[in-house]
Amino acid sequence: MILYGLKTCDTCRKALKSLEKAEFRDVRAEGLPKDLAQAALAQFGDALLNRKSTTWRALPDDDRSRDPLALLTDHPTLMKRPLIDDGGTLYLGWGADTQAALLG
Rank of each mutant, 00 (worst) to 15 (best):
F44H: 12
T73V: 01
I84P: 07
A39D: 14
F24D: 07
L3Y: 01
Y4M: 08
L90S: 06
K52G: 11
D61N: 04
G31N: 01
L103F: 02
G31R: 03
R66F: 03
E20M: 02
Q38Y: 01
G93T: 06
K34E: 13
L78T: 09
A42I: 07
P60G: 10
L59T: 06
R81V: 07
D74L: 02
D85K: 00
Q99H: 05
K34W: 00
L92K: 12
D61W: 03
D10K: 15
D10H: 14
D67E: 12
G87E: 03
D46I: 08
A96M: 02
A47I: 02
L6D: 00
L49A: 10
D67L: 07
K52H: 14
M79L: 15
T73S: 06
K34R: 04
W94P: 07
K7D: 00
D63M: 14
P76W: 01
L19P: 12
T73D: 08
L102M: 09
L92A: 13
A70K: 14
L69D: 08
P68E: 05
T11I: 11
A58R: 13
T77G: 10
G5K: 04
V27M: 04
L41E: 09
T89Q: 14
D10Y: 09
P76A: 06
L48P: 10
R66L: 14
L3P: 06
D67C: 10
R57C: 10
R57W: 08
K14M: 02
I84F: 04
A100D: 02
R25Q: 07
D26K: 11
T73A: 09
I2K: 07
S18M: 06
L103H: 05
K17Y: 02
G95I: 02
T8P: 03
A22N: 03
Y91N: 06
G31S: 01
T8N: 11
K17E: 03
Q38C: 07
L41A: 06
P60E: 15
A39I: 05
L90Y: 09
V27G: 02
C9K: 13
R13P: 00
P82N: 10
D86I: 02
L48T: 11
R81D: 01
S65M: 12
K52F: 06
R51C: 07
R51G: 09
D74A: 11
A58V: 06
T54R: 15
T77C: 03
Y4C: 05
T89I: 04
T73R: 14
T98Y: 06
P68I: 10
P82D: 09
D74R: 13
L49N: 09
V27R: 05
T54M: 14
C12M: 03
L41V: 01
A22Y: 01
P76G: 01
D97N: 11
K52C: 04
T98R: 11
